[in-house]
Amino acid sequence: MDTKSLIIDIATKLFQKQGYTGTGLNEILKLGHLTKGALYHHFPGGKEELLLACIRSLHEAIAEDIESIFERQPTTAEAIGAVLDRLIFLYETEGTIAGYTISSVVSGIDTLSDPVRRACAQLYVEMQGIFRRRLAEDGLAAEKASSLALMVNASLEGGIVLCLTTQSTEPLLAIKQWLPTMIKELESSE
């Protein structure tokens, strides 16, 4: 792994575990056995530029995984169920699903800059776009597909946060029980 990727990997894990404000650059450098010169060579803008790189990296991984799951499922309801199954499996086998959300990375976002907020929003917009396109393909009217895509996104993100804070898959299991059923009912009413 090259130095830049190593820095992003270490920083992402620390940001997920401790939040942006709870993670110091010296801690990242120590874990990677790196110098400040190496960090500032790759991230001259410092910690915030590094955070943006971490968000972009998470963005790519999360969007790619969701796209892959959606491509393998015949309906949106089944795809959402498969996404939830994946999240539950990850939590049960790895003890965390922090890598599937950016909320753990940007805790304290109210104090972060507009570029960071925009990077986070871009991930959510892309995820909603995946959900919206599939819902439209399944026959939902554009306005209803957009609204439901937002609700799916909020449910998944909220379920992940609840799962991480309660240290239980119960929130994701509850969402899995109701969300696909609700999607099927809305699709059949169109």
Rank of each mutant, 00 (worst) to 15 (best):
L31P: 12
E48T: 13
L31R: 15
K30E: 15
L51F: 01
G46T: 10
H42I: 08
F43A: 05
K30R: 15
P44E: 01
F43Y: 03
R56S: 03
C54Q: 02
I55S: 02
L25V: 15
L39A: 07
L29T: 15
G46M: 05
L34S: 08
G24S: 09
L25C: 09
N26E: 12
C54A: 10
C54P: 03
L25H: 09
C54M: 03
K36G: 15
L52N: 06
Y40G: 08
H41A: 11
A53D: 03
G24Q: 05
A53W: 02
L52V: 10
N26H: 11
C54R: 01
C54V: 13
G32P: 11
K36M: 09
K30F: 13
H42K: 05
L34D: 05
A38Q: 14
S57L: 07
G46A: 06
H41L: 11
I28Q: 09
L52S: 07
T23H: 10
A38L: 06
K36Y: 14
L50F: 01
S57V: 08
T23I: 11
L34A: 06
G45F: 00
L50Y: 00
L39Y: 03
I28D: 09
G46E: 02
G45D: 02
L25S: 11
Y40M: 05
G45Y: 01
H41Y: 15
H33M: 05
E49A: 01
I55K: 02
K36P: 13
A53L: 00
A38G: 07
L50S: 00
G24D: 05
G46V: 09
F43K: 04
L52Y: 02
N26P: 04
Y40V: 08
K30T: 15
L34W: 05
C54N: 04
E27K: 13
E48C: 09
H33S: 12
L52F: 01
L25T: 15
Y40R: 04
K30W: 09
L51Y: 03
L25N: 12
K36A: 13
G24K: 10
K30V: 15
K47W: 00
G46H: 05
H33I: 06
L51P: 02
L31F: 12
N26W: 01
C54I: 04
H42N: 13
F43S: 04
L52G: 07
A38E: 11
K36L: 06
G32V: 12
T23K: 11
F43M: 04
I28G: 09
Y40P: 06
K30D: 15
E27G: 13
H41V: 06
T35N: 12
A53I: 05
K30G: 13
L50R: 01
R56H: 00
S57E: 13
I55Y: 01
L29Y: 14
L31M: 15
L29Q: 14
E48G: 10
E27Y: 08
N26T: 14
H33C: 08
A53P: 04
K30H: 14
E27Q: 14
I55D: 02
K30S: 15
N26K: 12
T35Q: 13
E27C: 07
L31S: 14
G32Q: 11
K36E: 13
H33R: 12
R56V: 00
I28N: 10
E48L: 03
L34Q: 05
S57A: 15
S57N: 14
G45H: 02
L25E: 12
H41D: 08
L34Y: 04
G37R: 09
L51H: 03
G32Y: 10
A53Q: 02
